[in-house]
Design a protein around this nucleic acid. Structure first.
Lengths: 193, 193
DNA sequence: GTCTATATATTGATAGAC
DNA sequence: GTCTATCAATATATAGAC
C-alpha cells in the first residue's frame, strides 16, 4: 500500500516521473514512448529515473496504479453526490463528453492502452485491465440498484462497450460532433432503462 | 489500379510478403512486428523483401490495400446474396460472430490497427481509415434503403461504433461468450429498426 | 539522491556480389 | 530477382563517480 501524501523529495520526484510518463504513454502509446522521451519531458537524468524504477515496464505499472487512484476518486465523488443510480451513470457519460477534446485527439486512455498492450504485452495488459474492472464493477452496482439483478454485470459490460465504441469511432474520425451525438444516444439509453 | 491475377513469380513473392506481414501486423501490431519478424516468417531474405518494398511503411500500405480488396469482395457478396438491407446488415454482424475466435484473441483488425497508428503514425492511420470508410459507406447505403434518409450516415457510424465496442470489450476480457451476447444485442437492434 | 558515460541488443535500411 | 554483409540510429539498461 502506498501513501497518497508525499513526504520527501524522492516521492515528489517519483510522482513527477509517473505523471510525465502517463501523459506521454497516453499521447504516443507505451511502445511509442522511449525512455529518452521520458528523460527529456521530465527534465531529469537517465540514471535518476532508473533510481526510482528498474525498468520502463515498472513505470507503466506505476502509471496504471496512479490512474486507478484518480478514477477511484472520481467514482467516489459521483457516489457521494448522487443517490440515484441513473444519475450516477449519466455522470459517467458526462465525463466522456467533458473530455471530448482529448478523447477525439488521443482516444480513450483506458481502451487504447489495453488495446496496445493486448497485442504483445499480455503481462502488462493484465494490469491495465484493472482499469476496466473498476468501471465494470461500479456500473454493475448501479444496475443492481436499478433492480437489474443477475443481468447487471452484463449490462455494465454493454455500457462499457458502447462507451468504448464511441471513443474509438470518434477518435478514428477525430470528430467531436460525432462524440457528442453518440453520448447523447447513450444518455437516452440510460434514461429509458 | 492493380491486377488481381498474379502473372509471374515476382508478384507471387510480393503477395506472399503482404499476406505474411498482414498476419503479423494483426497479431502483434505494426510497431510490434520488426522487419526481421517478416523476414523469418516469410522464409525470404532481407534484401529480397527490400527489392519489393522500399520501407516497412510501404509494406503496411500494401497490407491495407489487400485488406480493402478482401472486404470489398465480402460486401459485394452480401449485396449479391440479399436484396433486403436489414438482412445485409445482419450478415455484417454475423461476420463478427463468425470470426469471434480471432476477434477475442487479437481484436478487430481494422479497429486495433487504426487505434495503434492514430497514436504516433497519423500518416499511416489516414490510409488505414479507408477500411472504416468502406464499411461506413456500405452501411450508409443500407440505412438509406431502409428509408432513413439524412440520418443514414449517422446511423452507420453508430452501428460501426457499436461493433467496435463489442470487439474492444470482448478482446480486453478475451471473452467469446460476451461477444456472442453483444452481437445478439446488435442483431436485435437491427431487427427492430 | 544526482549525474555522466557506456554497454548491448535491435531497429529499419543500404550496398553490392551473384 | 536472390542472397550476404553491414551500416547508422535508437532502444533499454547498467556501472559508478560525485
Amino acid at each position: 500500500m502506498q501513501t497518497a501524501k508525499i513526504h520527501n523529495k524522492g516521492e515528489k520526484t517519483r510522482a513527477g516521473i509517473v505523471e510525465c510518463a502517463g501523459r506521454l504513454f497516453y499521447e504516443h502509446g507505451y511502445e511509442g514512448t522511449s525512455f529518452s522521451d521520458i528523460v527529456e519531458a521530465s527534465g531529469l537524468f537517465r540514471g535518476n529515473i532508473y533510481h526510482y524504477f528498474k525498468t520502463k515496464d515498472e513505470i507503466l505499472r506505476a502509471v496504471i496504479e496512479a490512474h486507478l487512484e484518480v478514477y477511484r476518486g472520481m467514482l467516489a465523488k459521483w457516489d457521494a453526490e448522487n443517490d440515484d443510480a441513473k444519475i450516477r451513470m449519466i455522470a459517467f457519460v458526462d465525463m466522456i463528453t467533458g473530455r471530448k477534446a482529448e478523447l477525439v485527439e488521443f482516444g480513450c486512455p483506458i481502451g487504447s492502452l489495453n488495446t496496445e498492450l493486448a497485442k504483445d504485452r499480455r503481462d502488462l495488459q493484465q494490469a491495465a485491465s484493472a482499469l476496466f474492472d473498476l468501471f465494470r464493477d461500479w456500473l454493475t452496482d448501479c444496475f443492481k440498484q436499478l433492480g437489474k439483478g443477475a443481468e447487471s454485470e452484463s449490462l455494465a459490460l454493454h455500457l462499457l462497450g458502447r462507451a468504448q465504441g464511441v471513443a474509438v469511432i470518434s477518435h478514428v474520425y477525430r470528430d467531436a460532433k460525432l462524440l457528442r451525438h453518440e453520448t447523447k444516444t447513450l444518455r437516452d439509453w440510460i434514461s429509458q432503462l
